[in-house]
Structure formats: C-alpha cells, structure tokens
Design a protein around this nucleic acid. Structure first.
Length: 277
DNA sequence: CGGGCATTAACTTCGACACT
DNA sequence: AGTGTCGAAGTTAATGCCCG
C-alpha cells in the first residue's frame, strides 16, 4: 500500500482527511488534540468521541504514510493527545503536490525546540479558528510560513525578508485588524528578540505592506510563556534603540486570545484579565 | 529522617462491538 | 463507513510503608 498512486489514494480520503493534510502542510506540526479541535468538532456527541475519531483517522492516515507521528512527545507521555505531534509524511506530501502542483519538502524528525515552537504557533491558529467558529470573530484569514514572508527594501535599498510566525487578518463587526504573531518559547536570547524587532521596524518604515493594504500596518504581538518573560521582553524592546514602542505588544499565552478579540487598537486595561482565582 | 521499594490512583491509548 | 461507548492494558506520578 505504500506506493499507491497519489490520485488513487486521494479517492479513499474524505474531505476532512484532506483538510487535516492541508493544515499540516500549512502549519507543519500539530498535536492530536489540536487537529481534533480544528477539524473534528461537528456532529460529535462529546469531545471524547471527537478525540477518539481523530485518533482513528490520524492512525489511518499514518498507515498510508500520509502523515507521521513524531517520536518526541511534548511534556511527556502522560499529557496524552496534547503531546502527540504529527507532521506530513512522504505520501501526504506527494498527494498534495499532485493536487496542487507544489514542490516537495523534506520530512524528517525536527529538533525539539523547533517542535515546541511550531506546535505553539499552531495552537495560536487553533485558538483563532475556535474563536471564529463560536462567533467571537466575524472574519479570519490565516497565513502561515512561508507564504506570509514579507519581502521589502530596508535601509540603503537592501533587500530583506520578514518572517512572522503567523499572519492573521481578523474582523469583528466593523473593524479589520492585521496581526503578525511571534511565538516566543522563552529560549531565545534578548539580542535575538531585539534584532527581530528591528526587522519589523524597518519593515514598517518601508511601507510596502501599508501600500498593499490601504494604509494598514499589522500590529506585532509577541506571545511569551510567562509573566516574568513578558517583562523581560518588554524591557528589551524598551532598551532597544530606534524602536517605536507602540508597534509591539507583548502578552502571555493566556492573554493571547483576549488581546486579539479586543482588537489591535491600544487597550484600556488588562488588569481584570490577570486576576484569576 | 530519608532512601528504596511496592502499591495505588489517575491518566491515556486502543481494540471491540453495537448502532446509524 | 463512520460514530458512540465500554473496558482492557499500559504508563506515570503520587502515596504509603519499611528499615537502616
């Protein structure tokens, strides 16, 4: 069954299978739970059944080598479906390549830091999808790497590329917000952070994005794992020269969704959100 | 008191089967 | 074929117990 012709294989797949494959292509890595929350929600009695169905389907896809389960599990075995990570495998890659006339990628077991970072970014996408589904967001357009890379001319006409972790355009009833998300796992040195922030700064100055989107500049949202880290990043951004502070906003993972739902305009207060008992 | 070991509790995955 | 549900089997962490 390994060398089934991709189009023959495609006939055995349902629409949901293909959506899972496309999600893994776009976001590279996702946990079982994330894929369940994204694609296995409609028509299930409870979330346990949905999870069971997702596990079965993912296992079936893995049997065709459409997807592969990583050896590394986030947080260890006892985290269950939250720890099992999937990526596209050779057959799935070939299938999507045939369907979409795209070129191939390599699919090897990534490094641990990459896994945790990428799954974190996927989590942002899943949270936004869920928010849209329950009506908290009227519109949502997600663009992941590498499609969201932004080429622009920096200082002295030097060609540069900005690589956000995730690009999102959200809309509530009347406002449309553009976001660039940077998921910080807490492992990067502050100099790396500020260097990246300066790329954003030059990108804003170049004005190419604003020209293409009616004058709108995306808000840059840094998502960090802890309050301590949040203060460190904010301090680093403050200390960096040539940074206009209001372009960048730093929030913890818990604050991510409320921040996006509140919109990219400067917020009044975040204190109520922090008090959690 | 603390190390080492066995037991228990709390999870998960996954097979099985009925049902639609 | 896909869904709903149960329970067996496996795991890990927490707990309890003994003994030097």
């Amino acid at each position: 069954m390994r060398d089934l012709d991709p189009l023959t294989l495609a006939k055995e797949l349902n629409e949901r299978d293909l959506r899972v494959l496309r999600t893994l292509r776009a976001h590279r890595l996702a946990t079982t739970r994330q894929l369940q929350r994204w694609h296995y929600t409609d028509g299930f009695g409870d979330s346990a059944t949905a999870l069971r169905s997702a596990q079965r389907a993912l296992r079936r896809l893995a049997g065709h080598r459409l997807i592969a389960r990583l050896y590394y599990r986030i947080g260890g075995q006892q985290r269950g479906a939250d720890s099992v990570v999937w990526q596209l495998d050779v057959a799935g890659d070939r299938l999507l390549a045939v369907l979409n006339a795209e070129k191939r990628r390599r699919y090897i077991e990534p490094r641990r830091a990459f896994i945790e970072h990428t799954v974190g970014v996927t989590e942002l996408a899943v949270q936004l999808i869920e928010a849209q589904r329950r009506g908290a967001l009227a519109e949502l357009a997600l663009t992941s790497e590498p499609a969201n890379w932004q080429r622009f001319l920096g200082q002295h006409g030097r060609s540069e590329i900005l690589k956000p972790d995730l690009l999102a355009v959200t809309a509530s009833d009347e406002f449309e917000d553009h976001w660039m998300f940077e998921w910080d796992t807490g492992s990067e040195h502050q100099s790396v952070i500020t260097r990246k922030a300066l790329v954003y700064e030059r990108f804003a100055a170049a004005g190419t994005y604003q020209q293409a989107h009616g004058g709108v500049l995306p808000a840059v949202l840094w998502i960090v794992p802890s309050e301590v880290r949040r203060e460190q990043i904010e301090q680093a951004l403050r200390n960096a020269r040539n940074l206009t502070a209001d372009v960048h906003r730093v929030v913890t993972a818990e604050q991510f969704l409320p921040t996006v739902l509140a919109g990219s305009e400067p917020m009044t207060t975040t204190e109520e959100r922090n008090s959690r008992s």
